[in-house]
Structure formats: C-alpha cells, structure tokens
C-alpha cells in the first residue's frame, strides 16, 4: 500500500512522464511530418506541465497579493518616508474604501521581487532588500494603509535589518506558489510556438517541393533522384 500511496502522491510527475513518452514515441514512430511536429509539441508540453507543477506549493495561493501585512512591512523597511505618507493617506481613505480591489493590483506591480524572495529563500532576503522606487511606494501606499489600519496600528520601524527579517516572517504566513517556474515556462512556450511555426512552414515548403509529407516517400524520391537518374539531382527545386 505504501507503494501505491507513493505513486499516487506523485501523480503529476506520472502525467508528465506518460505525456513525454507519448510525444517522443509519436516523433519517432510516425512518418507524417505534421504528426511528428504534433508529437514534438506534446513532448514539449509535458515539460511545461512538469515545470508548472514544481512551482506549486501545497496550500499556496497564486502569487498575487492577498493581504496587506506583507506589503506594509516590506515597504516600511525600504521607505520609511513613503510608508508614513501612505499611512496618512490610508487614514483619510479608511471609511468605505475597498481594501482589496484596486490596491491589490498596485501591490502586485511593485512587489513582485519581494514575493519571489520571500517564497524562495528567506535567508537571502536579509541585506538584499530591493524595494520599489519611492514614487511607486507612495502610489501603492494608500491601499496598504487601509489594510493596515483594519488589521493593526502602523508601527514605526527603526532598524532596517530587523524589519526585513520581520517582513520575511510575515510573508511566510501567506504561502505563495513559486512564480519563477511559471515565468520560465512562459518563455519556453513562446520558444515552443516559434519552433512549431518554423516546423510547419518547413512542412509547407517540403510539400511544395516534393508533393508529399510522408517521410518514407520523401526518402524514396531523394533516392531516385540521387541514384536513379543522375541528372535529376538538385534540378528539381
């Protein structure tokens, strides 16, 4: 039973392996060039799934800003001034404002770097705070202030290092999935599309030049051209 559980727990990897093998098999076994390309696509897609699944953290949410705490702490660390102003704004804006809607979008923009750090490697965070530029901080601060005031009174932060560590601690309470593999795979998807496009364009050209897209027929035509009538070589295109 342990074995079954072991296998079942890793079902995402099994999907990846099965897809990968299917893709490779199609590439090798099929003679039709378009089918080969589709096989290649399946093969690549399996790798995308693999990457996406390694970025997932159990219980983690999408790497989109969900709570005010983290943002305030991270900002407080880098930009005391911005924070103070933000808190003031927040106080003004407190009654009747939607704390999550627009604010969340801003936060996402400004804080992506910090999310990554917090999610991945807490130890590297200390001493490497790279907050958003001041203007952005001020810009994002109002919503941040709103959330702060709802949750807890704003704190004065004197010591940067401890603040950063604290921010990391707070951020660790909200678990985010790791966005980095997703970003990587976006790049890989673009590469995959480009490859498929070039491949299909080649198939079109092959079809124009040979009149077929079956591998064995292509080979036969080339063999005739090379060994049959010697002058046919190279003249056809």
């Amino acid at each position: 039973m342990d074995l079954v559980a072991f296998l079942a727990e890793r079902y995402n990897y099994w999907i990846f392996i099965v897809l990968m093998m299917m893709g490779l098999y199609i590439v090798i076994a099929r003679g039709n060039l378009i089918k080969k390309l589709i096989g290649l696509n399946v093969f690549q897609t399996s790798v995308f799934i693999y990457y996406i699944s390694i970025g997932k953290i159990t219980g983690g949410t999408a790497p989109i800003y969900v709570a005010g705490d983290m943002e305030r702490w991270a900002h407080g660390a880098g930009h005391d001034a911005g924070h103070g102003e933000g808190a003031a704004h927040g106080a003004d804006a407190l009654p009747g404002k939607d704390p999550l809607g627009a604010g969340a979008l801003h936060a996402d923009e400004t804080l992506q770097g910090d999310f990554e750090l917090a999610g991945n490697d807490l130890s590297t965070l200390t001493g490497e705070a790279h907050g958003a530029p001041d203007t952005q901080a001020v810009h994002a601060a109002p919503s941040d202030g709103v959330n702060d005031l709802l949750a807890a009174p704003p704190l004065k932060i004197e010591d940067h290092a401890s603040a950063v560590a604290d921010a990391a601690h707070k951020a660790a309470e909200v678990v985010y999935s790791n966005p980095l593999p997703h970003v990587l795979i976006l790049t890989a998807i673009v590469v995959g599309i480009a490859t498929t496009a070039v491949g299909l364009a080649l198939v079109v050209r092959i079809r124009e030049a040979y009149g077929t897209i079956e591998e064995d027929e292509l080979e036969a035509i080339d063999n005739v051209a090379e060994f049959g009538e010697t002058h046919a070589k190279g003249a056809a295109a």
Binding site: L37, Q44, V191, G199, L202, I206, A209, A237
Partner: peptide, 24 residues
C-alpha cells in the same frame, strides 16, 4: 539552401526535430 537543392528542406526539418528534442 532549398533554392539549390530541395533536400535542404528535409535536412532542416530533421534538424528542427532533433534540435528541439535536444533543447527540451
């Protein structure tokens, strides 16, 4: 190279398939 010899097309296609498998 297909302008001179159409086998350049199949050569490029095979290279594409193998190269993509390698990259993947």
């Amino acid at each position: 190279g297909a302008n001179k010899d159409r086998r350049a097309l199949t050569a490029a296609f095979n290279y594409l398939v193998m190269g993509t498998i390698g990259a993947t």
